[in-house]
Amino acid sequence: MKNTSSISPNNSITSLCIGKFDGVHIAHQALLLQSDVNGGVLIVGMDHTPSLTPKQEDFINLPVFRIRLEEVREMGAGEFAAFLCSRFPKLKKIIVGYDFRFGKNRSCVPQDLGEFFEVCVMDEICLDGISVHRQAILSDLVHGNLERANQMLGRCYEIKGHIIKGQGRGREECVPTLNLEVDQYALPKSGVYATMSKRRGVWYQSVSFLGHRLSSDRSFAIETHVLDVDLDGDEVGECVSVAFVAFIRSNQRFENLALLQTQIAKDIQKARELLIPSSICLQS
């Protein structure tokens, strides 16, 4: 994470979107659209763990700069404006959300910067009467409301992980899976999902499970089975992305292997039905 002294003066930035941007959801996207061709993004705040977007740069097509909240927390409007001008000498316009506050005890509002810059304040955006923000998306993911979470994000929720060695039972007893270790990301409700999985730059239709293996060793796992493609040669440590398209079912325990195999076949068929290309929005 860069601190204030690590942001070298940048003479190309004329407009700056300021906020936390975890999720880069549709409200953030509306804010980013107000930037000009020489715009940038200043991410202010502590790292969120778990996070919706540990690496916001994957979803923002503008230069991204970062500072810790502690470094500007006590600044008044004049001091904060001076800091911005020292780092972005040609800055003319700032763009912030309706709930943006800064300064000691969050006592300053965007209009306090109007003496120094053109200030654009974006209106609140709501879905189903609920304000679009990080906490709402996290709540929907945890409670299995994937459809609304994806609507708020403007894309399918995506996590990234690294391949780890699994039990070795999938290929022999059920279906082959890529077993993943995922850090930092907020995880959806345990269960089975229709997904798209990206490996080596290619997206594949898939069905994915996350949760405790109730029918075997009860350990927590994140596994994805790619449909119609046998991805042999799994490399431990290789990065794989999983985008959650639709929720299929909750996690459950099966009394024997035959019942598990039957359910997996049903899950795969359901995933095929749900993975209609025109309905899937992915980050390229």
Rank of each mutant, 00 (worst) to 15 (best):
A265M: 11
C156V: 05
N3K: 10
A136L: 01
R253P: 01
V44A: 14
Q252N: 09
H212M: 08
G168A: 09
I95A: 06
L113T: 00
G237Y: 13
T177A: 02
M46S: 13
F88R: 03
K2H: 12
K160G: 14
I264K: 10
A243W: 01
N256V: 03
T177H: 02
Q151F: 11
E223F: 03
V119D: 05
W203Y: 15
I137H: 04
D36M: 10
R68P: 06
I137P: 00
K20H: 15
N61G: 13
E181Q: 14
S206T: 13
Q56W: 08
N61W: 04
F59R: 07
Y185Q: 00
N11H: 11
G144K: 01
L42Y: 09
I125A: 07
L227K: 12
Q29A: 13
L113F: 10
Y204C: 08
D99K: 04
R200C: 12
L127M: 09
Y157E: 06
G154V: 09
I264T: 12
G211T: 05
V175K: 09
C156T: 07
E273L: 13
S216P: 00
D99M: 04
V245Q: 01
L141T: 04
T177M: 01
I264S: 14
L127D: 08
G166L: 13
E74F: 12
Q184I: 03
I248T: 06
N251F: 11
S86E: 03
C239I: 11
L274T: 00
I164L: 08
Y185D: 06
L69K: 08
S219R: 14
L42G: 11
G39R: 00
G191P: 00
K93Y: 00
R101Y: 07
I248S: 00
L146W: 09
R68M: 15
V192E: 11
R199P: 00
L187S: 03
A194P: 05
E57V: 05
A30K: 12
S139A: 15
P54M: 15
Q263G: 12
L153Y: 03
L274A: 07
L16C: 02
D99L: 06
D99H: 05
C17K: 04
I67H: 04
L138I: 13
Q252F: 08
M196I: 05
T4R: 13
L180W: 00
L69I: 12
T53R: 06
K104H: 10
T177K: 03
D140V: 08
R200D: 14
S15F: 04
S279Y: 07
L84Y: 08
N61V: 04
V242K: 01
R253D: 06
M196A: 10
G211L: 05
F116C: 01
V192H: 11
G19L: 09
K165F: 03
H133E: 13
S51K: 12
A30E: 09
G191W: 03
G76M: 02
M122V: 09
F65C: 00
L282Y: 04
P188D: 01
F116V: 01
E147F: 05
C120S: 12
F209G: 01
M75A: 07
R218C: 12
M1A: 12
D128Y: 07
R249H: 14
G40I: 02
V72Q: 00
L178P: 02
I95D: 01
